[in-house]
Write a protein that binds this DNA or RNA. Structure first.
Lengths: 137, 137
DNA sequence: CTTGACCCTGTAGTTACTACAGGGATTACT
DNA sequence: AGTAATCCCTGTAGTAACTACAGGGTCAAG
């Protein structure tokens, strides 16, 4: 059995996790990724555990978590996981996304209604412009 | 009839349009608002037309237009309005918002499904963390 | 050895704002 | 007139989440 520990450079790590190479440094600066051991030349050396952590961050992002929330989840993994707290974070995030969806839906509907009044012809008369230009009181 | 031209300072303009005072400078830097005449002390003096332009920008933002698109609409007002082009911009914007809504909806649903598997108890066992930690191939 | 790709750190750009600092100007009140 | 509070000016920098570039050192393959 091959028990040799796999090591990654920053570029190899980024590629393995399918993130931008600069994003690795960015997450390090933000404290999500640790500052890893270095070669004598100063090159970062990452382990398999680092890769798994980076993939965790990527998945959290895909689930709509902000980096701050992701950081909280990581703190729990580093320390003690409390499923109740995790669920709180997740539910708050769901509410946040719901609010964004509601916002965008309202905007989309409003714009759609206005745009439907455009004749769509090459004329200076335009319902959308009129709407934006409605005189103020 | 009172025909005196109303003039605004930057702060008064921002207040009249219900935008942040610094936003006025920001829009000026971005080219959406003109660099207005000044007093001898260097204070900006805005007219009613400036106010109407700022409100136009605000309304465009409320309809989900990005500043670049708003700039295009303003260029038309300054020059020639072509309703066909306006409608193109609006329809593209509607598509953009639709895509955002679809994105967020997928994220929300995915997160909801995972969070529903959390027991919500003060335990180290947590379905969401497990999902983020699923081993990589 | 050479070359190309990689790494390092630092800096700055994207979008749409928003806030702060230092210093001058204005306004209202005494 | 003096004073204090508020406003304005320009410039700078911060927010979130990245991403790109520069100059210079390092590594690996031919």
């Amino acid at each position: 059995m091959n028990t040799k520990k796999r090591e990654y450079s920053r570029g190899a790590l980024a590629k393995a996790a399918s993130v931008n190479i600069e994003t690795v440094r960015f997450y390090e600066q933000k404290g999500l990724m640790p500052n890893p051991p270095r070669t004598t030349a100063g090159y970062r050396r990452y382990s398999q555990a680092h890769l798994e952590r980076l993939i965790f961050i990527k998945r959290a992002k895909e689930l709509g978590f902000q980096l701050e929330e992701t950081g909280k989840l990581l703190s729990m993994i580093d320390g003690e996981i409390d499923c109740s707290t995790v669920q709180d974070i997740a539910l708050a995030n769901i509410e946040l996304i719901n609010a964004k969806i509601a916002d965008l839906t309202q905007i989309r509907d409003s714009l759609k209604e206005t745009a439907s009044k455009c004749t769509g012809e090459h004329t200076p008369e335009c319902a959308l412009i009129e709407r934006l230009l409605t005189p103020v009181v």
